[in-house]
Design a binder for these strands. Sequence first.
DNA 1: ATGTGC
Length: 391
Amino acid sequence: MGTPRLVGASSRIHLFASSTAWIEDAAVRQLEQLADRRGMRAVAGMPDLHPGHHGPVGCAAEAEGSVHADIVGTDIGCGMQFWSLDIPERKLRLDKAAERLWTLEGHWSGNAEARLEEDLPTEGLDVSPFAGALGTIGGGNHFCEVQAVVEIVDSDAASAAGLEMGSIGLLVHSGSRGFGAAVLARHYHAGTEGLPLEGGGLAYLRDHDRALAYARLNRQVIAERAMASLRTEGVLRLDVPHNLAERKGSRILHRKGAAPSDRGLVPVPGSRGAVTYLVAPLEAPSEALCSIAHGAGRKHDRASMERRVRTSAGDLERLARNPFGGRVICTDRQLLIEEAPDAYKDIHKVIADLEAMNLVQVVAILRPVVTFKTARQIRRIEPRNGWKDKR
DNA sequence: ATGTGC
């Protein structure tokens, strides 16, 4: 059994990763910077920890009396939503399904305003400028993925999530689109001091809760669009945000790329070329801050992927398939490369660390069948000779 | 991450 590593001289930072885990020094330094912030009582790093633009991804941080909105970041409420679909694996036609999912591209034709009014808390920042983005996946690491069960480890827990061998699931990873960014912009300007709970913190949390609801509804509408296109129905089984702040009395628990461990089962995806683990969080030591990993975590930054991935026509074609014979729909060449499976850590290793730390038990394992990222046709402006200098 | 930026 593993025990969390203490980081630095501080007894407030615990890293729940084995000594052989792929963790960059830069990410550990970012954890230390988090711990130095106002009111910070404890910081927990997960095995998917990696450096982020403004702070570490794959961590939880608990502060007394202060809300640090920038830790949660722009994509407030980003997370995973899992559905079990009515269609069995034997009836799913790969090419047909891949073709049909193209309908996820572009705007949703439904009544976004009505759905938002129905689902969001009433008080808070005006959401109407962002109604048009409801039901859209967005960019970066977001996706909508049809999955097939490859292994059932705990059949009781799996069947409670609607899964047995031969079942098809749908996993949606998306967030609050522009709305979460607008919430952050409204409450966060610069610096690392944080907001006193009574001096701006509560106002942030009110808007944050709306962004949380937007993100959840966004995932749901994406799933509804996907199911309609696949001519099937399904049951919403899990919705697990991993970018959020949670008030616990006078303390604020911030999670950035960390899934809550106190709300039931959690889907932990690898990459578009790797399996997703469905896990049951276990009763954990308080140092884990009620959190587990949210995925495999990045191994390589986006910028370095261009040189890491060979990009001849054949290689690009290979990136549009996964090792299980499934399909990847991503017409954006840049995104295809940045999100290559090689960019991510080994999900088996991340899960093994979580198991060794006694944080989770595996319930089921699913493989990607079709991963939809984007079908947008990019307008590419080819630079002409001297284009840059001419102005 | 981003109604994705000058």
